[in-house]
Design a protein around this nucleic acid. Structure first.
Length: 1155
RNA sequence: UGAGAAGUAGCUCAGUUGGUUAGAGUUUGAAACUGAUACUUUCACGGUCGGAGGUUCGAGUCCUUCCUUCUCAACCA
């Protein structure tokens, strides 16, 4: 049986071929089956959403997942990978709204919720086939047959169960939160919606610095004792309409404030004002400090002021002030106080922040913390409420008025500040330009508004989450300790509510009085509770008939007939049992899909039989994905032990983009901590972004998005994966450049393919099928032991890299080995062994060595380049059957052999490479081509160990650089020019401060000094009144030059070259030139490597003796059985003219011999 | 605004606990080698290691500060 030979490397074709092979032989399933009884390595797939097409960055993220799952499989673990789909959420709904041409308000009116959700269900899997295709195409092994889908009833049932557990632990509560709200659209907005492009716009608003009058009492006496006027806090706002809702003022504890006496610029009344010291100059020009108060006249532009005292913010805490615009008082709390806030800065404003808890997130938080109470003087339409007297009914932003006319400035802000000015409550009013968010749908400004929401009390478990996070292996580490750790430190309660339609319904029912709540934990429980409500007669006939009417288009024919019959039955006989049977039937029908609107139709009963209705909210989709470890198993209804006994929880490994830090990573962690007191994943790799080659974000809009399908089709999946993994660390951003893939294709895959091609070319000739016993290492050539040693070092390092979740390192190591060691040194130097001579012991050793390298590379690289490496593996293994496996992915990961590693050997081979390169460089400088043999090289010997190392690789060097002999030079006669320099690394710590002086002394050493330290091993001198002892370790001695020779020095190594050309050398050079020309002709004429020939050479004075003196050498090299020097070629039409040396041209003829 | 990451040759990236001429590939140009090669080898060009300070005998590496890019979270006076 022969190894397959190829004309060309077709990575894309290999991808397809191997993909078919995998599918045909079910290799993925087999890779799991063979580990059936092994330890599991638990991997969770973060569910993508299939309502958008996959991009190139998905190839990146999935390559990372795939690499470690394959690696762990090869390491002997059972790695199951269940695919998943994220199906709920706003992006889906927005897509559907867009394609149906409707808005949120139309849902339930123009289209029924049932139909709408049906559209969502269809839409969300729109691109599933593209996703599946990419998965197969790129070789991402994940079980697509039985994925978890977040919209399925079973999945939602687990979510309900988890929510119920949270509820029972008291971790679920209803409260207010301040959310972006669009009064024009009448809906809250998610941050997602707020981050739509163009939402933030620069607008000019009326800003005001208001005076809050301090109430004189014990706490505030320190202020009043310094002045004879009223005292005010100055606070700045860009939204004067929030001032009627003010309930507090915030100052910075560490900020310094000044009390300043001056006049109000609008009322001219003398006042004393508190303002941050850093901001005083903003309101009080320095030059006015000296103006005498008694000279001030009403209306003067320059208003005098005087600093009366300085306070820290802390001293103001809890001081009371008079309510600025007293239209209403908060129902609860202790308002109108000064509080401390960490968000207060002196960047702008006055260093004192007006707090309206209803209209700002910070305000809300600090208000709650201090119990300030809240005032919400604006309704959901954006109008001031009734109690606002003259302002009642005014829109807080004029844009909300449908008759809004931008030419007239009828902003209520202006009217408010006019009123404040008149009441001696405004200190400064001006237009202020800032960026303000707008609703993407109505184009009108949004408000921050308190909305009812359900929360998860994540803050209650904050400390535990932080603690558990420290046990997670984050790649890179900074994402865990920094970005994620920081997020946990500043954790707020998780707002779970969403007012949408397509998502997991919140399973909480409440009665009209909101006194009794019920959280449902399973479909069965819902059914039981609903039946109870049926018993309690809470499902009226009209109600049931409406439901049947509502869903008539959804029923099957049987269902419709059945329901109609039952309804008619109730009507005809008007009997109670009939009604109940109908109700049961309706409940059963509703249970088939627990989404809205069906979930909304359930009525449950309180203890005393009152009706309870579902809270209309959906839950945050992030809960869906965060609950995936449990929901994918339909826990606890099935697979209970897998979670409870920690058999399939937590995950050993997950990987997603870094953008998931506060998304999936957080929700996994939060749910794991809250409900199972455990991390949800032990290792997480968060990869960076894929940018275009110029470092810009890819986007469809810019047209710089890279199509993953085209890329893989063009370059093949392996090169694409290899490039993405080796070019940058996964967590760094990748600047994606197709040029880089073709480089990988050429350099890595090309080289490896060629190495394989080289191997099979000769292995097929010699019939090597690895049937011989392994030749022991010590019987193999030095170079064989060297590459085996390097190979084992490679196995060790690559294994460690994978194990540390460092795929980039693993790939780069392999690449370097293949390129530097295997192809360009081992194969290059061993070529002759393969094509010369008999099928000998040494030749077999060479084949075995090269085979082992190729086989090992295939197994080491299989996780990153699964197709190509399987191909390579199969092409080798199909002939030799060394492994009892039909795919590389069913083999074990290579195990390194410590006793095969020989560091001395690796070191001297490096020496050989270095010397060769130095000599080649010398040749180049002197224009002596490599084919011209030279007599000898001289190697200065500085120590015996060095000589020993070099002697072992001497022959390698000589043949590589085409030199006859090597001579070792000992410095007995002082013929070297040596140089010495101090070893800073050893001397630095010892002598520190006088290092510079020592260095100067050492560099001035003459050859006697150098000889002395070499001989004695120690050298003592004094420097800066200090005795300095140098040992040989403290200096670095190198040979600089060997006078009279052609010398190259590099990295402290020196080598000299004898370039004298004798006639024999010149003739041999000519012979080699002839060989070279003949070989080229052989190749051009398409002769086989093994074909024997007869060579005719035209007689030529300059070369005849070279030919005659090297005749047998020439013949063996070119496989010539006869070599004939003749004068009759001129007329031969098969002759070929070649140039042997400059100006020496001769005719050659090659005839193929038949035997 | 906050948090995180990054900034080294035209481009893509290495650069260990600080140790004295800062590397590789790629690009461009010149040449050589090759009976595996789409490779390789050699030479040339290419750097204020983002800027400025500081610590140290010594800083690409440690500290401070600023600048730029990206990401996430936010935007509240």
């Amino acid at each position: 049986m022969k190894y397959k030979e190829y004309k060309q490397l077709q990575l894309s074709e290999i991808g397809k071929e191997i993909r078919n092979y995998w599918e045909k032989h079910d290799i993925f399933q087999k890779s799991i089956d063979i580990r059936k009884n092994a330890l599991p390595f638990v991997f969770y797939e973060g569910p993508p959403s299939a309502n958008g097409k996959p991009g190139i960055h998905h190839v990146m993220a999935r390559a990372i997942k795939d690499i470690f799952c394959r690696y762990k499989t090869q390491k002997g673990f059972l790695v199951e990978r269940k695919a998943g789909w994220d199906t709920h959420g706003l992006p889906v709904e927005m897509g559907v709204e867009k394609s149906l041409g409707i808005t949120k308000e139309d849902i339930g009116k123009k289209i029924s919720i049932a139909d709408y959700n049906n559209e969502c269900r269809k839409d969300v899997m729109k691109f599933k086939s593209e996703w599946d295709e990419l998965t197969m195409m790129m070789g991402y092994w994940v079980n697509l047959d039985n994925p978890y889908i977040t919209f399925e009833n079973n999945y939602i049932e687990t979510l309900w169960q988890l929510l119920k557990r949270l509820y029972e632990k008291g971790l679920l509560y209803k409260g207010y939160s301040i959310q972006p709200y669009s009064p024009a659209a009448g809906t809250g907005l998610s941050t997602h919606e707020l981050n739509q492009p163009g939402c933030y716009r620069n607008v000019k608003d009326t800003s005001a610095v208001a005076q809050f009058k301090v109430i004189r009492n014990k706490l505030s006496e320190k202020l009043f004792s310094l002045t004879d006027t009223d005292v005010y806090f100055l606070a700045w706002t860009t939204t004067p309409w929030t001032l009627p809702s003010n309930t507090g003022l915030a100052v910075g504890a560490k900020i310094n404030y000044l009390l300043i006496k001056t006049f109000n610029p609008y009322t001219f009344i003398p006042v004393s004002l508190v303002v941050a010291k850093d901001l005083v100059s903003k309101y009080f020009p320095e030059k006015n400090a000296d103006l005498p108060f008694e000279d001030y006249k009403e209306g003067d532009k320059n208003i005098p002021f005087k600093v009366l005292g300085e306070f820290s913010g802390r001293e103001f805490e809890n001081i009371n002030y008079e309510q600025l615009m007293p239209y209403a008082k908060p129902e609860e709390g202790n308002p109108f106080r000064v509080v401390l806030g960490d968000f207060v800065t002196t960047e702008d404003g006055t260093g004192i922040v007006h707090i309206a808890p209803s209209f700002g997130a910070d305000d809300f938080r600090v208000g709650k913390q201090y119990g300030l109470g809240a005032l919400t003087m604006v309704d959901k339409r954006g109008q001031f409420i009734e109690t606002m007297a003259e302002f009642a009914g005014r829109y807080v932003k004029p844009e909300y008025d449908t008759n809004f006319d931008p030419s007239k400035d009828n902003s209520v802000d202006v009217d408010i500040v006019i009123k404040l000015k008149a009441e001696n409550k405004a200190f400064k009013v001006e237009k202020y330009e800032h960026s303000y968010p707008h609703c993407w749908r109505t184009d009108k400004p949004i408000l921050y508004y308190p909305l009812d929401s359900w929360f998860i009390r994540t803050t209650a478990l904050k400390e535990r989450m932080i603690e558990l996070n420290k046990t997670i292996n984050w790649k890179p580490e900074s994402t865990g300790s920094g970005r994620f750790g920081n997020w946990l430190e500043n954790l707020v309660d998780w707002n779970l509510s969403r007012s949408r339609y397509w998502g997991t319904p919140l399973p909480i029912w409440v009665d009209k009085d909101r006194t009794e709540f019920k959280c449902i934990g399973s479909v069965e429980e819902l059914k039981t509770e609903a039946f109870k409500a049926v018993e309690a007669n809470l499902y009226s006939f009209d109600y049931l008939r409406d439901i049947v009417e509502k869903y008539k288009t959804i029923f099957t024919t049987e269902e419709r007939d059945d329901f109609n019959a039952r309804i008619n039955c109730v009507i005809d006989r008007n009997e109670e049992t009939g009604l109940r049977k109908l109700a049961y039937k309706v409940v059963e029908f509703l249970l088939k899909d627990v989404h809205r609107p069906y979930a909304d139709d359930f009525i449950l009963a309180t203890q005393d039989g009152k009706a309870m209705y579902r809270e209309a909210d959906l839950i945050d989709v992030w809960f869906d994905s965060g609950a995936m470890p449990y929901a994918q198993l339909h826990y606890p209804f099935e697979n209970k032990n897998l979670i409870d006994e920690k058999k399939y929880f937590p995950a050993d490994f997950i990987a997603e983009g870094v953008d998931q830090t506060r998304g999936w990573f957080f929700t996994l962690h939060a749910i794991g901590t809250m409900l199972f007191d455990s991390v949800a994943f032990k290792t997480v790799v968060s990869n960076g972004l894929v940018l275009d080659k110029n470092g810009n974000k890819m986007s469809k809009r810019l047209g710089n998005a890279v199509d993953p399908f085209e890329t893989i089709e063009k370059f093949g999946p392996d090169a694409t994966r290899w490039y993405m993994i080796t070019n940058a660390q996964p967590w760094d951003n990748l600047k994606f450049d197709a040029e880089g893939i073709s480089e990988v294709q050429r350099k890595f895959f090309g080289t490896l393919y060629n190495t394989y091609a080289f191997f099979v070319l000769y292995a097929n000739i010699d019939g090597f099928t690895y049937k011989e016993k392994d030749i022991p290492l010590q019987e193999r050539a030095e170079i064989d032991r060297w590459i085996i040693s390097e190979l084992n070092t490679l196995i060790k390092d690559v294994d460690a890299a994978y194990d540390n979740f460092e795929p980039t390192q693993a790939g780069r190591l392999i690449q370097n080995f293949v390129d530097e060691y295997l192809s360009n040194w081992y194969v290059r130097l061993c070529r002759r062994r393969f094509w010369k001579g008999e099928y000998s012991h040494d030749k077999i050793a060479a084949y075995q060595t090269l085979y082992t390298c190729l086989d090992t590379i295939a197994r080491l690289s299989a996780p990153i380049a699964p197709f190509f490496m399987d191909k390579l593996f199969l092409d080798l293994n199909n002939v030799t059957s060394k492994h009892n496996a039909i795919s590389v992915h069913l083999t074990d990961f290579p195990v390194f052999q410590q006793n095969s590693i020989d560091k001395d050997l690796e070191e001297r081979m490096q020496l050989a490479q270095k010397f060769s390169s130095m000599i080649l460089s010398l040749r180049k400088k002197n224009n002596i081509r490599v084919r011209q043999p030279l007599n000898k090289i001289l190697i200065p010997v500085l120590n015996p160990a060095f000589e020993k190392q070099v002697r072992k690789v001497e022959n390698l060097i000589l043949s590589e650089v085409n030199v006859k002999t090597a001579e070792y030079l000992y410095d007995t006669a002082g013929i070297f020019v040596k140089s010495i320099k101090p070893n800073f690394k050893t001397l630095g710590p010892k002598y520190g401060k006088i290092m510079k002086q020592i260095a100067a002394v050492v560099q001035d050493f003459n050859s006697d000094d150098i000889n002395k330290i070499e001989k004695d091993g120690v050298y003592i001198f004094s420097c800066e009144n200090q005795s300095v002892t140098l040992t040989t370790e403290d200096v670095i001695i190198t040979t600089q030059d060997v006078p009279g020779w052609l010398v190259a020095t590099n990295d402290g190594f020196t080598i000299a070259l004898d370039i004298t050309l004798t006639p024999e050398l010149i003739e041999e050079g000519i012979a080699r030139e002839i060989i070279n020309r003949v070989q080229n002709i052989r190749k051009e004429q398409g002769l086989e490597v093994t074909d024997k020939i007869t060579l005719y050479i035209e007689s030529h004075n300059e070369i005849n003796s070279a030919v005659n003196n090297n005749i047998s050498y020439i013949c063996t090299e070119i496989l010539a059985q006869n070599l004939i020097v003749t004068e009759n070629l001129i007329n031969d039409h098969n002759k070929i003219e070649v140039e042997i040396l400059e100006d020496i041209k001769v005719f050659l003829k090659i005839e193929k011999n038949n035997n």
